[in-house]
Amino acid sequence: MSGYVVRRLLLYVPTLIGVSIIIFVIMRVIPGDPAVMVLSGPGGEAVYTQEDLVRMHRILGLDRPLVVQYADWMWGFVRGDWGISLRYNADVFEEVRRRLPVTAELAMLGMFIAVAIGLPVGLISAMRQETWADYVGRVFTIVGLAMPTFWLGMLVVVALSTWFNWLPPLGYAKLHNEPWGNLQQMSFPALVLGYHMAAYIARMVRAQMLEVLRQDYIRTAHAKGLRERVVVVRHALKNALLPVITLAGVLVGGLLSGAVVIELIFSLPGIGRLLLDGLRTRDFPVVQALVLVFATIFLMVNLLVDLLYGWLDPRIHY
C-alpha cells in the first residue's frame, strides 16, 4: 500500500507541473495589465504616467522573458516563497495559510451536511420506491440539483432577514476564539453548500441501492432470514457506497468552486473569495498559487478516495 501511495504521489508531480504551466500561461495571455491595477487601484481612480507603467512592469518582473518568469515563480513556490500579492502587498503563502482554514471548515461542514442528508434520503427513497417517501425524496433532490448555490444562498439571506429579522453577526469569528459566533456564521453557508451536494449523493445512493437490492446475494440474505436492517446496512449499502465515494471525491471540486460564491454572499474571508478578487484584479501571484492549491487538494482527495476503495471492497488491493 505504501508503495502505491508513493507511486501516486510521484505521478502528481507532472500533473501539478502541467497545471502550473496552464495557469501561468492563462494569466499571461488573458487581457488586463496587472501593473495598471497596481497603479490605478481597484476603482481605477489613481492617475499614472507611461513612465510609471514601465517602472511598475520592471518592479513586478513582467518585463522579463516568460520562461524566466515561470522558472522564478516555480522555484520560489517549491521553497515556500509564493510571491507577493499585487493587491494587498502581502506574502501570498501567508495569505493563503490565513484563509485556508475558513474554506476548509466550510467545505468539511458542507460535506458533513451533504452526507448526513444525502445518504438517508437516498436510502429511504430506494427502500420505499414509488411511495410518498420516495416522491418527497426525489423532489428534494431535484430541487437541490436545479437550484444554483449562489441563488439559494441569496434566498437564505433574504429569508432569514425577512422572516426572522436575524442574520449571523458581521466580522469573521474564528472557531478557536468565538466558537458560537463561528457556528452562527458557518452553519447557513455550509447548509447551502451541503444541500446542493446532498442532492447528488441522494440520487446516487438511490440508484445504486436499487441496483444492489435486486442482486442475488441480497435475495439470499433475505432468504437466510436476516433482519432488514442487517441486509441493508451490511450487505447492500456497503456495496452501493463505492460509486458514491467516487462521486464525493469529485464533489470536493464542486465544494471548492461553490465556496467561491458562497463566501462572497455570506462575507466569509476564505480562499474562494481571495481567488475571485485575485482574478478580478489580475493579482497573478495569488491566482497562480491558489489554482495549484486547489489542484493539490483535489488530487489528495482522489488519492484518499482510492484508498477508501480498498477498505470498502476487500477484492481491491494496492
Partner: peptide, 18 residues
C-alpha cells in the same frame, strides 16, 4: 465590515446589523 454582496448588505441593514 467588508460585505461584498449587495443583497447581503441590504439584509444586514434591514436587520439592524449595519
Amino acid at each position: 465590515y467588508l460585505v461584498p454582496d449587495q443583497v447581503t448588505r441590504m439584509a444586514m441593514m434591514a436587520t439592524g446589523r449595519l
